[in-house]
Design a protein around this nucleic acid. Structure first.
Lengths: 320, 320
DNA sequence: CTGTTAGCGCATTCAA
DNA sequence: TTGAATGCGCTAACAG
């Protein structure tokens, strides 16, 4: 027990004893076993994090924010990717729950019944991110994909564009993409404009080059299109490069707007107008929600689910 | 014990009993505790993976390859990032070893003494990736950063370029970048060309925009430079976009070559010549090395350290 | 401030 | 094919 106290820095130990124990720990190269510790103390020190894809700067930044906040509190991240599928999410979640995480951070507000049941049974804090679910499981740290898309349409409208198209994903697999499309439509109708120019490219992640093919198709079907919104900067980037290749001036022939403020959109020429949300902060807030809910639970306090809104910005740049 | 046999599918259980146990498991919503299982069986089911940055398509792909291979074998990934620092690597490694991983996958061949000692004491299989260390800790799944840079110089030479510069990172923190610079110099001297045109941009990750600033500086200091090699596609991309912005035709004014075959380099216009190694496969191989070493150890067989070379390719595209 | 007892949830080992 | 005893390494709870 004395060694345990020294290692975990919990409880009082005489400085002399601390020194002695520390010396022996050093001599022996002793490494405490957190799994065993967790078994005993009934908290594993893990937080499970599920993102659609790890190979995506936005989600990677979010994971960084989560990791930084967790590390400060002696917790570790258990990271898994769902490949943008709620069925895979259920599988991965099931695997992770065997690790008895102290909390779970999910992406989006759309989950299988199975996932919801497992989380219910687990009885641990849950945070949904990247969305504002109508029926939150527990806590939410997110934003409205509908509102953000509407804001982008307003920006385009303000810039004088009146024949606006949307290039997105197929909606079944990707509710966040579907919400952005919905925001697009609603905003256009608000402005009494035609909202029928929509091309859906299948399930994410959409390859960059498909953005190029899609804008060609868009301008073929609706030649008077003067602006196109994309579900992601990646597709917007692919589209703009294809325009360059074909000698179509951007934004003169067609304006382009993306989503997510990726490196490629920020640094290419011309720079792509996009939306920005602070993914790192979203991750940090989500992790902090888990941590404070955890300590409240440990103190026997009942925890009120919270909804934290992450602000977004429209970054008006050269392509609009 | 019978339940344990049903859950782990190890050992014989009568079909009737399996059915009965499975039904009760379902009814109860029982979730096995892998941490407790690992404590008992003395293998945690974790493999620790340390990458310089999670927000990097190459490392993310590698992590995907690792995860896929591990999942097939019932193992889980414990992912950590070192921020391109071997001191951070030591810290993160120390934290992860408290989880008693069954193996460790590292990036690069440069590690602190402390890290090497910890791994020694842990007595588990280790794989170093992304490099060919002179003194491997254990197994290696990598490639020569020197050779790959030399191959790129050869390509540029073949294309007729004779005044070639290199824009890289500051060498102390990034031995892989330093190796690429070394390959650059050696190859130039082999061709009896000047190897003094080098700009170093500090520790990775280098912001994309710095590539743009650096190429401007390069052409100011050495105006007759006709080709520039970059330590990464990200900087190469930033440089090319800056050229576009300034109306410098690429490759006519200056040729550009990158490293890593990132999305942005593959899809921009003109497409950037780069090198490609299959990071997903590198990850898969590394994980499989851990797995087979693990089973060999379990069988009491002694494991010979292996060195697996990952092939690389020069992707000659429009910027050279 | 330090130490004892007990048990966390499993799998190994051995017995039936 | 099933089950009983035991212990993995740690910490909660309590005693001294």
């Amino acid at each position: 027990m004395t060694v345990s106290r020294v290692v975990t820095k919990k409880g009082r130990v005489a400085p002399k004893t601390v020194a002695k124990v520390s010396r022996v720990i050093e001599e022996l190269g002793y490494v405490p076993d957190l799994n065993a510790g967790g078994l005993s103390s009934r908290n594993s020190g893990f937080v499970a994090v599920l993102v659609p894809s790890i190979d995506n700067s936005n989600f990677a930044q979010q994971a960084r924010g989560i990791t930084d906040a967790l590390t400060k509190n002696g917790l570790q991240i258990l990271l898994g990717s769902t490949d943008f599928s709620i069925e895979r999410e259920e599988t991965v979640l099931g695997t992770m729950l065997r690790r008895r995480p102290d909390g779970v951070i999910l992406t989006g507000g759309n989950h299988t019944e199975g996932s919801r049941r497992m989380l219910e049974n687990a009885g641990i804090p849950v945070v949904e991110t990247w969305d504002l679910p109508r029926q939150p499981i527990d806590h939410v740290v997110g934003f409205s994909n509908i509102a953000i898309a509407q804001a982008m349409v307003d920006h385009l409208h303000e810039r004088g564009y009146r024949h606006i198209g949307f290039i997105g994903s197929s909606s079944a697999s990707d509710t966040r993409g579907a919400d952005r499309e919905r925001g697009f439509s609603e905003a256009l109708r608000k402005h009494a404009l035609d909202d029928s120019r929509v091309i859906r490219l299948g399930a994410p992640p959409i390859p960059v080059e498909q953005g190029g093919e899609a804008i060609v198709e868009m301008l073929r079907r609706w030649p008077d299109t003067d602006a196109v919104m994309f579900v992601s900067d990646r597709t917007a980037f692919g589209a703009m490069q294809e325009c360059l290749r074909r000698g179509w001036p951007v934004p003169e022939r067609v304006a382009i707007a993306g989503f997510g403020n990726f490196d490629m959109a920020r640094n290419c020429h011309p720079r792509i107008t996009t939306t920005s949300i602070d993914c790192y902060e979203m991750g940090r807030f989500a992790a902090e929600r888990i941590i404070s809910a955890g300590t409240q639970l440990a103190d026997g306090v009942s925890v009120e689910p919270e909804i934290i809104m992450i602000p977004y910005r429209i970054l008006a740049r050269q392509t609009t």
